[in-house]
Amino acid sequence: MRRLVLLAPAVALLAGCGTTTVTGTAAPSPPSASANSSNAGGLPPDPQPGATGDCPYLDSEVVAEANGQHVSKVRVSADQPHPACFFYRPDGKVQLTVRVYVGDAKTATALVNQAAPLDSSNPASDPSGWKGGYLSTDDGAVYAVAKGTAAVIASTNQKQSVKARTVVKKVIAALKL
């Protein structure tokens, strides 16, 4: 009986301790929107220059004439069916970039608004039926327009947005968007 008396407090103490079962696996928390500002709001990521090659919808001579600089090299992104095209000047720096998006109308508009924000850009409506914006910065100019499910965005190292607009119009005509 003595053993029972001595064991009783130990059993009572252990009875109060239950086991906790954890199910599932630990998962890392999703990255915040600020971790990749180019992908904020679910937009496609900014295109990156890839292979050296010709731009399938814009000739180097057209860019040289429109932008006023010799084109030494062209690189294209992996995006399909319309890769972004990066035109380089002789010193190895990018002089002009063109991005074409065809897909969802809301995404097309959002890409244009990201490139030329409504609150800080001038309204653009050329060519007819396309809407967006253009602006000049210390680094150059951008001209971005959307129509339906398509968007075309050109960024240049030149401060005159007319150069980017000329390129955008050539791309739209070439792709028959």
Rank of each mutant, 00 (worst) to 15 (best):
V142I: 04
G18K: 01
V167I: 14
E65F: 08
K73W: 03
Q48G: 04
S136G: 14
P47H: 00
P9I: 11
V100K: 12
Q160C: 05
P123R: 04
D59H: 12
N157A: 15
A64Q: 00
K93Y: 05
L96F: 07
A66C: 12
A8V: 02
K106V: 08
F86G: 08
R89N: 07
G103M: 05
A116H: 11
V168W: 10
G53W: 05
G148W: 09
V168N: 03
D79N: 10
D79F: 07
P117N: 12
K131F: 09
C55N: 01
V112L: 03
A15G: 14
T107M: 07
Q158M: 14
S77V: 03
L175N: 10
R3G: 06
A105H: 01
A84H: 03
N122W: 04
G148H: 09
A115M: 03
G129W: 09
T97I: 15
A33K: 08
Q95K: 13
N122Q: 15
D59Q: 11
S37W: 09
P83D: 06
A12P: 03
K147A: 03
S72H: 11
A108V: 01
V22A: 14
P28K: 05
V74R: 08
A35V: 04
A105G: 07
A144F: 11
A27W: 00
W130K: 08
R2V: 04
S136D: 06
C55E: 04
Y57M: 13
D79P: 08
Q114R: 15
P81A: 01
G53L: 02
K106L: 11
M1P: 14
V112T: 08
A40R: 12
D139H: 13
F86Q: 04
D138T: 15
V63Q: 05
R165C: 10
P44V: 00
M1K: 14
V102P: 08
L14C: 07
S38T: 10
Q80P: 13
S29D: 13
V112S: 06
A151M: 11
L6T: 11
T107N: 02
N113H: 14
G129Y: 01
N122G: 11
V22S: 09
S32W: 04
Q160D: 07
N36P: 10
